[in-house]
Design a protein around this nucleic acid. Structure first.
Lengths: 222, 222
DNA sequence: CGCCTATTGTTGCCAGGGCAACAGTATTAT
DNA sequence: ATAATACTGTTGCCCTGGCAACAATAGGCG
């Protein structure tokens, strides 16, 4: 049972290009702790001191940036195999800028920072690959932010929506996309008003640009 | 001469916690190439395949995200000791999403990706520290983006300005800040209209919230 | 010193879209 | 089945701030 979870973790990007033997050794060395959270439970609170990386093994969660006003901004959607906390490894304060809460029942593996940075004699080469994978993972996270800036800089709501959909379609590679969350959250993500978003989507549909079906959207403009 | 430039590079974050001997070995192993660019010359063009990290040793440069419309968005301001291209190390395409150009005469050290990832027998421990520093550098870049999102999500122009100034002041740690670029670029950075920014700054000054003196701003609201 | 360019200040117009408020539907819990 | 909660659609009002156009100043360079 426990073993299965850890086995499934091998497919996480952090463990790419590490063979089975090295993986076993590495797991031994990193000694991840498995924890369960119920829906709506908080995995991490803004300001918490973080000393570990979290890997979602099962379920989903959301990272939000809180605001003094009480509102909050969606930062990222965590799915199985998603990783969080890794960007805090190298900061001085190691305080989380976001709050993460479970949007369903969740299983998480935690790995201590010090385990990551400490030498591990038994699987040294794997450890190096692990560090490289970590660079890749954090870079990906950077590019997510980058993509978001590319959306947010659009001046009109319509062009924001277009930029978002185009991104979802892998720059035009697929004509039908599935929005990974509710329209309410989408409005949050592109920093727009929900009702305005609803209005604009309808307009675009009437103009034959897109066809909306729940969270599925056909991109007719491609 | 050449030697001096490389020596100054030791103070770059990427080489933190690496002693002089290890640094010499590492430089040998990484064999950086020094290149000079004149003001307005392009260091990197959108879509370019990037196989090296760049380290600014002297001068300044700017990274911009281009837009189909012809406009462009400021992504980052590169100063001496700034690093670019490191987030592309681990992507498949390794194509730059930004254009970087020199805002003054610039000296850059380039290090090949493969040199970074290849084993280096002579200074292995230093090499590992280098990878860790790289994680730190990319994480910092991520947090820069993060901070920007925190500014952009503000609904009114004034609150955007406030968020930006507050960030500049290290969350209220200092009462006077210096904007690191022109107001034209600041407007670009917070995705606002330049004239609207000018207007709002004036209003805030009249209300006694701030005192503007060129690029120096006193935060009277703290 | 004087030219040229970059930066900044200022104005008025007006449209994009935020907001509130309500209704209808879907989803989950009891 | 019923209640409760979340999500979605729709409308009208009205204000923020984008934009263009111009002037003035500052800074860089021959």
């Amino acid at each position: 049972m426990m073993y299965d979870k850890l086995k499934s973790m091998q497919s996480v990007a952090l463990f790419q290009d590490i063979n089975d033997d090295d993986y076993s050794n590495l797991i031994n060395c990193l000694s991840p702790q498995i924890k369960h959270f119920s829906k709506n439970e908080i995995l991490l609170l803004t300001g918490d001191s973080v000393q570990h990386i979290g890997i979602i093994l099962d379920g989903t969660a959301c990272a939000y940036l809180d605001h003094m006003s009480g509102s909050h901004t969606l930062i990222s959607n965590l799915m199985p195999m998603s990783i969080f906390g890794e960007v805090l490894v190298s900061t001085k304060s190691q305080r989380s800028p976001v709050t993460i809460y479970a949007t369903s029942d969740v299983v998480v593996a935690f790995i201590e920072y010090q385990k990551i940075y400490s030498m591990c004699a038994i699987a040294c080469s794997a450890h190096r690959v692990f560090l490289q994978n970590m660079i890749k993972t954090i870079s990906d996270k950077y590019f997510n932010m980058f993509d978001r800036i590319a959306i947010l800089r659009e001046k009109t709501l319509r062009s924001k929506i277009m930029a978002y959909l185009f991104l979802l379609s892998n720059n035009g590679a697929s004509v039908s996309v599935k929005i990974p969350f509710s329209k309410t959250m989408l409005a949050d993500y592109i920093l727009a008003n929900r009702s305005a978003l609803s209005k604009e989507l309808r307009k675009m549909e009437n103009e034959g640009l897109i066809a909306v079906n729940g969270r599925n959207v056909e991109l007719l403009f491609l």
